[in-house]
Design a protein around this nucleic acid. Structure first.
Length: 217
DNA sequence: ACCCAGGGTCATA
DNA sequence: TATGACCATGGG
């Protein structure tokens, strides 16, 4: 690992932005639904879809499984890819019920649970890890597009590493700290949304490298 | 009008 | 294994 270290980056982000209070969602199930709906999608759009589910009293695995596809698709419409996401959400809910729900799943160890989540069509590595970290509170480091971009720009990775290579490397360096992983990922996302005040969208800012307020993209 | 957004699957070489 | 097509809405 080159400088700055993972810990230094974390503290810089935390000192700049403070605690982020993630994941946005009232229950573990809502967190998991959000993880699927936010695939390659802005969170503001996901909020609308979840609000639709709530307003129709359908934020429930059994109800989602029992509801006609075209109805679910209409509620998911604002989150984009609504036909794909309807299939994925129904797949996930069917699996979730088969496995006995959250309490039953919570009894699995992290490695088993990760494999089980990945067996659901529509749940890939990042979605599974969002669920593991933010719904099941397991010490799993989420690698999303922002994380990869930031760590590559910082020189910590080449950019050709696999998802799991990056995840395991970072996990072994930081140690199995759920609360730290939670805040770190949230801070990376928060930071990515900040606009560079010097040259917006320049794409070259890395932490304090370019922007006076410590904002980089 | 264009670009991007808290990815994943499937078909093809 | 490694690309590419595809999915689709909403905000800047």
């Amino acid at each position: 690992m080159k400088s700055p270290t993972l810990n230094a980056v974390y503290h810089l982000l935390y000192d700049t932005y403070g605690p982020q209070h993630w994941w946005p969602g009232e229950t573990p199930f809502e967190v998991m639904v959000g993880a699927i709906l936010t695939q390659n999608t802005a969170w503001t759009n996901v909020e609308k879809a979840i609000a639709n589910l709530v307003s129709h009293n359908r934020l429930d695995a059994g109800k989602i499984v029992a509801t006609r596809k075209d109805h679910v698709a209409n509620w998911l419409r604002p989150s984009g890819y609504f036909n794909v996401k309807t299939e994925r959400l129904k797949n996930f809910c069917r699996w979730y019920l088969e496995k006995g729900g959250f309490r039953a799943l919570s009894r699995m160890d992290t490695a088993q649970l990760r494999v089980a989540l990945l067996s659901v069509n529509g749940v890939g590595p990042e979605t599974a890890d969002d669920m593991l970290l933010y719904a099941f509170e397991r010490p799993v480091f989420v690698i999303d597009a922002y994380t990869r971009r930031l760590f590559v720009r910082l020189g910590l990775f080449n950019g050709n590493e696999s998802y799991d290579t990056m995840r395991v490397d970072i996990e072994s360096i930081l140690g199995p700290e759920t609360v730290l992983f939670n805040e770190y990922h949230a801070l990376i996302v928060r930071h990515a949304k900040e606009v560079c005040r010097v040259r917006p969208r320049c794409g070259n800012c890395v932490l304090l490298d370019c922007c006076p307020a410590g904002l980089l993209s």
